[in-house]
Amino acid sequence: MELNVLDEEYMTSGHVACPGCGAAIAMRFFLKAVGDKTIIVLPACCWSIIAGPYPQSTVKVPVIHSAFETGGAVASGVRAALDMKGDTETTVVTWAGDGGTFDIGFQALSGAVERNEDFIYVCYDNEAYMNTGIQRSSSTPYGAWTTTTPGDEWKKLRKKNIVEVLVAHRIPYAATANIAFPEDLVRKAKKAQSIKGSKFLHIFASCPTGWRIPSESSIKIARIAVQTNIFPLYEVEDGVKYTINYKPKEFPVSEYFKLQGRFQHLTDEDMKHIQKMVDEDWALLLRKAGERP
């Protein structure tokens, strides 16, 4: 595999992410792509901690921590201020978890992208409120255990399809990415940076702690999510032009579930049901991409 990833690092060791943290990897790749003329708006999420306690900062770009639900709004302000200062070169990025994106921060995000603010909104998705200790979010997938969906009460609702919601805003660029596919991730981050207006990047970032997986399999499981079609890699330009970036191996979803503690309770029946949902979603995506009538 050839990786066109620059050797520059915009993060330092010594951050306090859990071992094998996908979110840390996601940030590392993303910063390599966008470089240091970048300001990060960081609403409450795991990264609020990973970034380092006062007086430390683990990234070599300016960061503004912000209230949980304000990712879109604070970034709008930073962008407006830079514009007023004549700085159109600096990239403004909101770096939010799934809670700050799908749920509590959704209004500010929707508002910002409706205004087509010139920034990149990155949601690194670990599929639950991990920083507070694994509580379900609207990004938590069907079938998952969390501390607020325990025992038989495991989540029996679909994960919100956030990219489609953003696409419905007709923003210039929306894409999924995955820490196991750095080349694709870096390309999309760079592409997002080159486009004016609102860009949304949905990065799948595994969470060993919350998913009950061994830390060493963090990348592997993220990769299987793509290979099984659970998390397809695609991008959408101007809300209409769909491109699927990776033709999955179409492994059965059980390949993905069997490796994770959070899905241990699922029966073969449940797997079949989930497979059906995944197949439906994939077929729908293929149609949108014009690859199936």
């Binding site: 300001i39 708006v41 503004i64 912000s66 209230a67 639900e69 304000t70 879109g72 709004a73 604070v74 970034a75 709008s76 302000g77 930073v78 962008r79 407006a80 201020a81 830079l82 514009d83 007023m84 200062k85 209004q107 500010a108 929707s110 508002g111 910002a112 409706e114 205004r115």
Partner: peptide
């Protein structure tokens, strides 16, 4: 000046936290 037509008072002040932190 730039007028940010935000979608709520909450975002109005959040945006200003961004602008003021950026020094304007």
């Amino acid at each position: 000046a730039r007028f940010l037509r935000v979608e709520s008072e909450h975002s109005a002040l959040a945006a200003l936290i961004g602008t003021a932190s950026t020094g304007v």
